Simulated assay, not measured.
Amino acid sequence: MHTAHLRGHDPAEHIAKLTSLNPDRIKIPDTDKGRRLRASLRTLRPAQNPHPQP
């Protein structure tokens, strides 16, 4: 997202794609940043889908 923003692209499309992903099924490095990203995606996903799947 940061690179898209620096290049003058609207990051909204990229953010929408990222937040629609299932955070438990995508490959995210097991680092501090990766764990923060996964946790953030988990909090965003229920807000996007009022009927989340278990």
Rank of each mutant, 00 (worst) to 15 (best):
P50D: 10
P52Q: 01
I15K: 00
R42S: 08
G8R: 03
L18E: 04
P46K: 03
T43N: 08
G8K: 00
R38M: 05
H2D: 15
D10S: 07
P50N: 04
P29Q: 07
N49L: 02
K27T: 02
I26Q: 00
D10Q: 06
H9A: 07
D30R: 08
L37T: 14
K17E: 15
I15Q: 03
L6W: 10
H14K: 07
Q53E: 13
K17H: 14
I26R: 01
A12I: 11
I28N: 01
T31R: 04
D24M: 09
P46F: 02
D10P: 01
H51E: 13
R38E: 01
P50R: 03
P29F: 05
K27A: 12
P46Q: 06
H9K: 09
G8A: 05
P23I: 03
T31I: 09
A12V: 15
A4T: 07
A16G: 00
T31A: 08
P52S: 04
K27Y: 09
R25W: 07
Q53T: 09
P11W: 01
T19C: 12
A4E: 09
T3D: 15
T31L: 05
R25N: 10
I28D: 03
L18S: 03
H5W: 14
A4W: 13
D30A: 09
P46E: 06
H2I: 10
G34Y: 02
L21P: 02
N49C: 06
K17G: 02
A16I: 09
H14D: 15
H9C: 02
S20C: 08
P46R: 06
K33E: 15
R45P: 03
A12S: 13
L21K: 11
K17Q: 12
P54A: 15
P52R: 06
L21M: 13
R35P: 04
S40G: 14
L41K: 08
I15G: 00
L21G: 03
H14I: 13
H14G: 15
T19N: 09
H51N: 14
Q53Y: 04
P52L: 02
P50A: 07
L44E: 11
H2P: 05
L44M: 14
P46T: 04
N49F: 06
A12G: 05
A12P: 01
H14S: 14
Q53S: 13
